[in-house]
Design a binder for these strands. Structure first.
Lengths: 248, 248
DNA sequence: GTTACTCCCTACCAAGTGGTAGGCCATAGC
DNA sequence: GCTATGGCCTACCACTTGGTAGGGAGTAAC
């Protein structure tokens, strides 16, 4: 075995570059040559690490969905834990993708390019989480949650809304009236994204702060002024500790 | 000139097949050979009609956005016209893409593959409409419309929600608990899609049917059927009668 | 030393890519 | 009849694609 001097570095580096290129140019639009160049090695060396282009694609996708899959359950837990966590959860999700929009773009691309593959992975990884979330929603229905929400359908659409929203945020931004100066439009888009997700699920109704389920009271910080709440640490939720440390 | 015996048929046929293939496999994933095969001609014949692959792509995109651009202004007009039109408008949009989800998938793909190109087309075609819609929303804000909506941002996200929602509807459907039998899940998804779009914009509040702006009461049914208006120029404008008959 | 193993390389391949050159044939105008 | 033109064809091009064959350099165990 011989303690492999750098067992990850190169493989990791390849994955990073491949992710970037697949996300930006698509799978078919990215040649092994281009990836090899980006990494700084020759094509056959690349093939040495990932026996075929398709295996590389799967590795990239796995790595990405693993991150995503470490994040989600923790957030669901936080959501279940208590009051006013809805904002925290959605904010965390959007932040996860905003931090590196290529993640979002990669998922969107894969969903289009390899639907069956993606469906299979989703049904293993995220569908269970969707189930938990749906149940949570159903429990709050008629109280904080709008009465006519279709729980499962909502969760799917919300996930899609967030991911696609981030994937195309740059494009939207450039089309916005104040899209030239780079700051404000992006913030507006993110804020509105979260608002849509929330207000389509949770009733704006009377404060019912004592509720054990998701309440609808706007989180203390006013919606207008942003104020980014910390960075890596999403409050509550002690992570299972075994959880990832990787790309975050 | 010689009255060209069938000036459109073949060109049209190529556009149809190219649209289908681009939407399903992407631009890079579709070879000219594949398109030629689908049409039933040889590759050089294809090149005879569209001098290059990129020109074909642009033609496909133009054709698609033209349809879209014929629909939108009419809907904005309907929305502006009066009460209870919000449901009709969104329903019409979703129906437009649901009728042929490849349209949605093509737009999503193009937005990823050629963002600058897409931005340019959007800023010419849909941004003006977005402006009208945003103004309409602002006018209703605080009344039927939620007070904290960011009008432009909402419109972009809503368009994205609808288009992406349709593009991935099939995948979602198959992941839904009752996704096996094909009917109900699809309906649930569509209904929820519309509900999200609406309830995130319009207050569920007390019936205020007399309002001149968008009310929240569900419209009886009849969407703004028929009566095609206008071609290149959005807003109002009676159709020049030469208008397209194409893929619709 | 020898062996074994990992990592990366040069050289090469068949297949497919977008695109060109040029010819054949039908129709249309004269 | 002759010519012209548009639509489709066969044949071919240079280039890139994903992938293979096989060798050399480095390190580690013995």
């Amino acid at each position: 075995m011989a303690a492999t001097p750098h067992p990850l570095p190169m493989r990791e580096k390849i994955l990073v570059e491949a992710t970037r290129l697949f996300a930006r140019q698509g799978y078919d639009g990215t040649s092994l040559q281009a990836i090899a160049d980006a990494v700084g090695i020759k094509k056959p060396s690349l093939i040495h690490h990932f026996a075929s282009k398709d295996l590389l694609r799967q590795a990239v996708l796995d790595a990405q969905l693993t991150h995503w899959n470490e994040l989600l359950p923790r957030l669901v837990l936080a959501a279940a834990a208590g009051e006013d966590q809805f904002d925290a959860v959605t904010r965390e999700i959007v932040r996860f993708f905003s931090k590196d929009p290529d993640r979002a773009r990669l998922l969107v691309r894969e969903a289009l390019d390899h639907p069956e593959d993606m469906q299979e992975r989703f049904s293993r990884l995220v569908v269970p989480v969707v189930g938990s979330l749906a149940q949570l929603i159903r429990r709050g229905r008629g109280k904080a949650v709008h009465a006519d929400v279709d729980a499962e359908a909502y969760v799917f659409h919300a996930i899609n809304l967030f991911i696609s929203g981030v994937a195309f945020a740059d494009s939207f931004q450039r089309l916005m009236p104040d899209g030239k100066k780079r700051g404000p439009a992006a913030e507006r888009l993110t804020r509105e994204l979260l608002r849509i997700g929330k207000s389509s699920l949770i009733q704006p109704g009377p404060r019912r702060s004592a509720e054990p389920t998701w309440s609808s009271t706007a989180s203390p910080d006013s919606p207008a002024t942003g104020k980014r709440p910390a960075r890596g640490k999403h409050r509550v939720s002690r992570a299972p500790k075994s959880a990832a440390r990787e790309t975050e």
